[in-house]
Nucleic acid binder design. Sequence first.
RNA 1: GGAGGUGUCGCCUAGUCCGGUCUAUGGCGCCGCACUGCUAAUGCGGUUUGGGUCCGCCCAUCGCGAGUUCAAAUCUCGCCACCUCCGCCA
Length: 438
Amino acid sequence: MIDPSILRSDPDRLRESQRRRGESVTLIDDLVVADVAKREAQQRFDELRNEQKTLGKRIGPLQGALKKAADDGARITAQAELDVLMAQAQELAEQVKAADESADAAGAALDALWLQVSNLVNLESPVGGEEDFVVLAEVGTPRDFAAEGFEPRDHVELGQLLGAIDIDRGVKVSGSRFFYLTGPGALLEIALLNLAMQQATAHGLIPMITPTLVLPSAMEGTGFLGQAAENVYRIESDDMYLVGTSEVPLAGYHSDEIIDAGQLPLRYAGWSSCYRREAGSYGKDTKGIIRVHQFDKVEMFVYCRPEDAEAEHARLLEWEREFVDALEIPYRVIDVATGDLGSSAARKFDMEAWIPTQGTYREITSTSNTTEFQARRLRIRMRDADGTRPLATLNGTLCAMPRVIVALLENHQQADGSVVIPPALRPFMGGREVISPV
RNA sequence: GGAGGUGUCGCCUAGUCCGGUCUAUGGCGCCGCACUGCUAAUGCGGUUUGGGUCCGCCCAUCGCGAGUUCAAAUCUCGCCACCUCCGCCA
């Protein structure tokens, strides 16, 4: 949710943001109307309710006086006065009830509209659709396998040769887009987890292992029940959701809290399984483990002052790069275009790793500055000398296991099908330097 | 899963039986001011959160929701969380 006061002070800013995203601009006009209607309805209720309370305060003492009335004359006078008041109060009660209902309805209508409004885009974000990203950096040089004299194998074949990935049995047990990590593949994930957590804790992030099943409020607060809803698994019998990223439980962690500004920034590194339906991706990445329904991920999440958010965003990107640098994988960094930000992000940087057998870069990390958007929805605020106000939240991938494993296997393979483990990872692999075909 | 108990503005707490002067009491903590060589102590004032505002105030908020009533922290119903006991269980 965006600061509602902007709707009154500068609605064109909202319109411009919607326009850049390629989302509805007329929605803002509807909001303006609904906002006025809501305030009018609320004010009417407030006034009537005030009247009702004022009147009610006279009834109690009068009833007391009636009980203590000394003689019949006084009793009759008091009773008559009370009857008049009660008649007024009864009529007022009906009006209050009606006003309350229309104020509630106006409020609900306004809230429903607000939920459709995506976050204000950062004006630096390139305008356009998925293809309109800007490349910020390109790091490392893709290997020239032709010059080395062999055809690179894809990660599916390598995974099989090494006994590291078992896709067939994943499909047998759980259906398409599921897999097992086996032997060295499982050890590789554990090593990556350890390397990621070592780096995270070195930078002062707090390690977290989070719930992966959450209530609707957490899912909605993080903005995943909007455009992304079709990719979320819902447990119908218990009205809960499986998270697609630990961003959800990490954001929900401080929901309904007011955090002392002195404690900020709060930085977490959460490890969890992630579940994605991948609806609408039929035919894409059907082979291999680039796009799967369940995987594990280490996610960074930051709560900070809104004025520090852009610097934090740069920091998250730096930490992501540090991790991929350590793995010696060629990559590029892109500034994601406004049409591809998702509802929560004001700005988003993706890292894309070079995948030799695809001859292209594929997303392996994503870091978003969601400014105060999620914090407002989740009622997370900070308190400083200026009072209480929403804070900013940011998130960034430190290590999404399957895609990093794909990049490692494909980029570090040798002619005989073995794979060299990058030195940074070796301490977490018992010193092993190479994984060889079984 | 079953039985009983509890849920009040940061923390603790009064109020709930018997509805109205609750505009929610008191203590601790915190903030400001005064006094003070400094600290402490003491005194005075402030201290839930959100919304509206003609900047006087007004409205909502007592775990959440619904209901009864002229009027609900208080009565009724449903839900949630926690505690105790029983059952089951990795």
